[in-house]
């Protein structure tokens, strides 16, 4: 249990750096923006208390905002996603509940579970983010297209990361 804290601190630094240094510089055709930093929220332990979850979401989002010149935008989307996480976890809970000592990983709960759990939360985050950014309904379909493309790309990176880095 004691190892959880340093590991998460390291993870937040790595993910923010990766987002700011690499992903923010990828500019595919103006439509695809992967936001891998949300992986941090996805991988937090099941026992994370609600206040900590929301605070971490806020701090993480604000950090990304500082580096991408978008005050409040990522913070609001990430807080929204952190808010939904307990609900989504409840919804996808296995019949006997989550076992203590396990983490939300493919290793413990399988590909299908992790895929659904990530897909819903990433989609929620991206929907919130892109629609707040545009803040008008006139280009509804275009924005939806951007949301879906980016969600697919982020989800792809999230799943890949599970096989390469976080095997457990």
């Amino acid at each position: 249990m004691i190892k959880v804290l340093p590991r998460n601190i390291l993870r937040i630094f790595v993910l923010v750096a990766f987002q700011v240094f690499i992903l923010n510089n990828i500019q595919f055709s103006g439509f695809v923006n992967p936001y891998l930093y949300v992986l941090f929220i996805l991988l937090l332990p099941f026992e994370t208390p609600g206040w900590l979850l929301l605070s971490l979401g806020f701090v993480l989002g604000l950090t990304i905002d500082i580096f991408s010149n978008t005050p409040g935008l990522h913070a609001s989307a990430t807080v929204f996603m952190a808010f939904l996480r307990p609900l989504v976890l409840d919804f996808f809970a296995p019949r006997e509940g989550y076992v203590t000592g396990t983490y939300p990983r493919i290793y413990y709960y399988g590909f299908g579970w992790f895929f659904q759990y990530s897909a819903i939360l990433i989609l929620a985050h991206h929907l919130f983010l892109f629609y707040i950014e545009v803040f008008r309904l006139s280009d509804f379909m275009l924005t939806l297209y951007r949301v879906i493309l980016s969600t697919i790309f982020t989800l792809f990176l999230v799943m890949i990361s599970q096989y390469f880095i976080y095997r457990r």
């Binding site: 609600g50 929301l54 806020f58 905002d65 005050p71 409040g72 913070a75 609001s76 807080v79």
Partner: peptide
Amino acid sequence: YNFIILFIVFETIALLLVFQRNNYQQAFA
């Protein structure tokens, strides 16, 4: 209801930051 209240507080702060930006001069306080 601390979870929901905290969510509303954080979300309000964040959205205020977003929409305060209508005048882009003061954008980056």
